[in-house]
Amino acid sequence: MSVANIRVAETPLVLYALRRADDALILGHRLSEWCGHAPMLEEDMALSNIALDLIGQARELYTYAAKAEGMENDEDKLAYLRDVRQYRNLLLVEQPNGDFAQTLVRQFLYSSFADLYWRAMMASRDTTLAAIAAKSEKESAYHLRHASEWIIRLGDGTDESHARAQGAIDHLWAFTGEMFAVDDGERALIHAGIAIDPATLRGRWLTTLSDITREATLTLPQNDWMQQGGRSGRHSEHLGHLLSELQSMQRTFPGLTW
């Protein structure tokens, strides 16, 4: 690497915004990998649109994290000059696209949570986060609708699509627990009314999942063992490759304006 990583003063609020920003950027990046390669033109458009929404959310959250930090960082420094150990996204969103079923199941598991999460966050006492939530909630509702419709089509489509969708659910299920985990810093933000407690969303999240998978003739795994680590920078091997691509220009040509 020809450029040093930035340092981020991760106060609870900075870290909170950064974690959500990283979720949105990494998932948006993954979806953007489909652009030009989707199974049909309508999905090239849909996946790109969802990616654009997520990258937009990431930009707002990074900008807010930088402001809350009050140092010299900005959205691009936060996105392009932190290495894999400094990234704070969920393991779920960094998982490779795989086939169309794996991408849509990943999206379904995330959007079904994000939709509830952003709606609840509209009540945050932090006016910036509440405003970002108001915009993100509208987008997430669409993302969830799009993903749900595909889960039903794939699950209740052909034997092949059913098997692929079920395989993807079984494969990704262990990454869902992290969405509901809270550390001490976040606990304090929850008490202050800045963040919401994701545990309170889990029941409704499961209901959405059960309703859609039932209609799709798919089943949710019984296994409740959950993989964690993304929030503290212990990622899967996949993220490093994604970042080396995402950050290649900023790492090769340090300090320039593009």
Binding site: L52, I55, M249, F253
Partner: peptide
């Protein structure tokens, strides 16, 4: 996937779309 800034990334994605 390699656009140099987030603004450029969003603009390029929107364009290709």
């Amino acid at each position: 996937t390699r656009a140099p800034t987030l603004r450029r990334k969003a603009a390029l994605l929107a364009k290709v779309q």
